[in-house]
Design a protein around this nucleic acid. Structure first.
Lengths: 338, 338
DNA sequence: ATTTTTCATGCCATCGATTGCACAATTTTC
DNA sequence: GAAAATTGTGCAATCGATGGCATGAAAAAT
């Protein structure tokens, strides 16, 4: 096989082509303003002509920067995580950064391994949606002076920047709205209690009940794992109670999906179907009339802010670590079909 | 702020620590077997002690390899694509490669831009799920001698390795199974006809009708865009016909979701609900009794094979480009609840 | 006992871009 | 009009790892 194309041109060739030194070309490319307008133009023309683009390895070697950010998610096949990824990526792109997404398979070991890999690859910063509430292994980033920000959840044993939503108030307002509709018996299906987001949502629920003087009833509260099957399962358990709740809060969209599926499969004319409320859009559930109240998170915004936070750190801002809480919004649906 | 940690150790420091040259250390790290067992051990111990890991930039500069593969998907928030990503990533990890995933936003321009970015970043190979049937811009990879493999779809104007499923036979067998169940009127909701996968699925449908001497009826065939809304919409149109089909083939899982949603919302006791058949698992639809026949693709396997194909190319195999077609499997469900 | 081969390791040029320093040319200041 | 400041550019060291070539020692062949 004959290669008709030459290897990528280097700085030297660009320099030779327009009779300046490599230093000058480098400066033009890096927008060093000391270079005269005129030479600048000549150099850029040569860059264009040769189709030059800087060798990322050589550049990285000198600058120790890769213009690359790592993003560790618990799981690839999760719409919520990937929408955050989209938010991050589109913001980073504006600044010429590339995002490297890794899958932690929802376990701490893989998370640690991915982080090490990313650090070894020379990323300039790391964004993590932690898979558990432990985060000591994340200090590896500090050791290399690579900034790290958490998204959606925080960890106990490691303090750093974090972008979260206001889970407590989000849940509070949803439950409050359900109470306002006259519901007295409100069930709660929680997520993996190892995760701060799950714990905060429970806190919002209990606080709302307290404030409205509704007794907290153990039998109305179940804990799943944020996956669809647990929503299905636990909805069944709630409906099997002597006095099933009139309304059930689902802590995330996957459990909501499971719950909705349970309701569909077990719909009986005589029995009253509980309303479903919970975090995130469940288009299916709402158009079926199950979902009446949802807590909407600004998902892409979370990603955007995470990206901006990490860029800020990379650019050397050394203010103390900060937790940013984004507001949620309550959306109500009519209960059609019922 | 005082940094208590030192910068990462270099080869030189490791070499100094155990009294050998940097070349020796480098050889140990790269498993050059010329080095004696004994020195090897000493060096590895020092590597361990210092927590040394090679500078990726320096290494890349010399070797022109990054141990990084790019993956361009049309859209992040698509379970099918991300399952392929998972398959790719877990296979690449075995060989110590990292995957960089990019979002083409379902358009050719972004796809081209992402590819350029990846090439500029020095990836060793690129895997692409093309967003359209045109692929001339993908030649940019050839120009830099970076291997590129396509997944799920091929493009017209650029020939390279591709991993696909047998869309024609998959569809054929699904339709055949529906005919075997006694259905005569089988509708078809196709995807974006610009994509080869969509065209092949149509071909499987028409071929099955032909083989079984069922006249092809234009009014039973609609084309959507692989998104949920189009499935919803087109299912409505099919049901509005004077003689609606008894069975409808959905060309992907999102349109299937939309169709199922339409059925749920418009269920009427008097009207017979058509069976849904189509590509990929639609857990919801099947447990509701809508979905009776599905074409299962080996999704993670597609990713695995794509990864192996690109690794093979990176290792210098220059055989002519090849298209690998994976077999699909027909899964049938009972029609419960009806 | 030489000569040849094999083995283990070291020396150092190299990859391509960046950047501190030097220096010449030009402009500004007094 | 001389000194000082500014501007534009080049020189060359540098980042850290790799690998061709050289070398000396040990093993094998004659």
């Amino acid at each position: 096989m004959i290669h008709l194309t030459r290897p990528s041109p280097t700085l030297k060739e660009v320099a030779a082509r327009c009779g300046v030194s490599t230093a000058t070309v480098s400066r033009v490319i890096n927008r060093d303003r000391r270079i005269s307008e005129e030479t600048s133009k000549r150099v850029l023309q040569a860059v264009e002509d040769l189709g030059y683009s800087p060798n990322p390895f050589a550049r990285g070697l000198k600058t120790n920067k890769s213009r690359t950010i790592g993003f560790i998610v618990p799981e690839f096949t999760n719409d919520f995580f990937m929408r955050i990824a989209r938010g991050i990526e589109s913001r980073l792109r504006q600044d010429g950064y590339t995002l490297v997404i890794c899958n932690a398979n929802e376990n701490r070991n893989d998370e640690a391994a991915r982080l090490d890999l990313l650090l070894d690859q020379g990323v300039d910063g790391v964004i993590v949606i932690p898979s558990s509430s432990r985060g000591a292994h994340l200090r590896a980033a500090d050791a290399r002076h690579v900034p790290l920000v958490l998204v959606d959840r925080v960890v106990e044993d490691y303090q750093t920047d974090a972008i979260l939503v206001d889970n407590i108030n989000g849940t509070y307002h949803a439950v409050e709205a359900a109470l306002a509709k006259g519901h007295k018996r409100i069930g709660f299906i929680g997520g993996n209690m190892d995760l701060t987001s799950a714990r905060e949502r429970l806190a919002g629920y209990t606080r709302a009940l307290e404030d409205y003087h509704i007794p907290f009833q153990d039998e109305y509260v179940f804990f799943g794992d944020f996956h669809q099957d647990s929503g299905y399962e636990l909805m069944g358990q709630l409906l099997a109670l002597a006095h099933p709740p009139e309304c059930v809060f689902l802590s995330n969209v996957f459990m909501h999906l499971g719950a909705a599926k349970y309701l569909l499969e077990h719909q009986q004319a005589k029995r009253r179907v509980p309303e479903l409320i919970g975090f995130d859009e469940m288009d299916f559930s709402s158009s079926l009339g199950f979902c009446t109240i949802m807590v909407r998170q600004p998902i892409e915004e979370i990603g955007k802010i995470a990206a901006e936070t990490i860029l800020d750190r990379i650019r050397g801002n050394h203010h103390p670590s900060r937790i940013q809480r984004l507001k949620t919004e309550i959306v109500q649906f009519d209960r059609k079909n019922k």
